[in-house]
């Protein structure tokens, strides 16, 4: 983990209200897929806290990484307008997704803004021959993101929307359920809203399942205990003990 200044290399609107940013730093620390960055929003119109945002793509050669976020309030509005530099940030934070050497087939399940961090897993493990079966759910076509990237990198991609405007009209966990036996993944990695995690838990697949959780944060480095996640072993810090937890352990 490191405190750095970031420069904005690219800033594009991916979908309505959803921004993709490419950020550069001369000396990026090591990165594990699923980790996040804590970005300063300056001291702007009463907004103070940094915004934790997960990493979509990581490029060591370029010393850049990409993030995708939804413009929701003052903080993200400020970030979406940034050009150039120097944004103070702490990176890379949290435990991230680690795949064991014996994992050959992975099911990725993403919901909305939870999809991007799953792509960083493909980026890292694709070269070592791991196969990815990807399930992405969105509210509607206008909010769909990263579909092309996942489509190119996955053995199979399934997309669902709540309104049927793209792919099947269904919940993404239902689409996954139909495929479980055919795909038979060694591990399931998921990132999305809590109802999606609840649906996933209800599937009771028996397959090791890891979820990337979200919480409002303060420090992002494990020192303030505000980002709590209730687990079978007590309240854990999302920023440091997570954001990735074993689905079995999390009390949803």
């Amino acid at each position: 983990m490191k405190e750095v200044f970031l420069n904005v290399r690219e800033n594009t609107e991916l979908a309505k209200g959803i921004v993709k940013m490419k950020l550069y730093c001369s000396s990026l620390p090591e990165f594990t897929p699923g980790q996040f960055v804590n970005l300063s929003v300056g001291n702007f119109d009463g907004v103070l806290l940094r915004r934790p945002i997960s990493v979509y793509k990581f490029n060591a050669a370029e010393s850049t990484f990409e993030i995708i976020f939804e413009v929701k309030g003052k903080g993200t509005t400020f970030l979406s307008r940034l050009k150039g530099g120097n944004i103070p940030a702490t990176l890379f934070l949290g435990n991230g997704f680690e795949l064991g050497a014996n994992v050959k087939k992975v099911a990725l399940i993403g919901g909305g803004l939870g999809c991007p961090p799953l792509y960083s897993v493909i980026e890292k493990y694709k070269a070592s021959g791991v196969k990815f079966y990807t399930y992405l759910g969105f509210s509607s076509e206008s909010k769909a993101i990263c579909v092309d990237d996942f489509s190119k990198a996955s053995e199979k991609l399934t997309v669902t929307t709540d309104d049927g405007s793209l792919g099947e009209k269904n919940f993404i966990t239902n689409a996954f359920k139909k495929d479980i036996f055919a795909v038979n993944p060694d591990v399931v990695l998921a990132c999305g809203p809590t109802p999606m995690f609840k649906a996933l838990k209800a599937l009771n697949t028996g397959i090791p399942t890891f979820i990337s959780t979200e919480a409002r944060m303060g420090c992002g480095i494990g020192a303030c205990y505000v980002c709590t996640c209730a687990t079978l072993t007590g309240n854990r810090r999302v920023c440091t003990d997570g954001p990735v937890f074993n689905l079995k352990e999390v009390i949803l």
Binding site: G46, V47, L48, L49, G75, A215, R216, M217, G218, C224, Y225, V226, C227, T228, C229, A230, G234, N235
Partner: peptide, 17 residues
């Protein structure tokens, strides 16, 4: 164990915990 979350909220120029 502390209190259940969410445990933090931002307000104008301040932080509630």
């Amino acid at each position: 164990e502390g209190n259940p979350g969410p445990r933090i909220a931002e307000t104008y120029g301040g932080v509630l915990n």
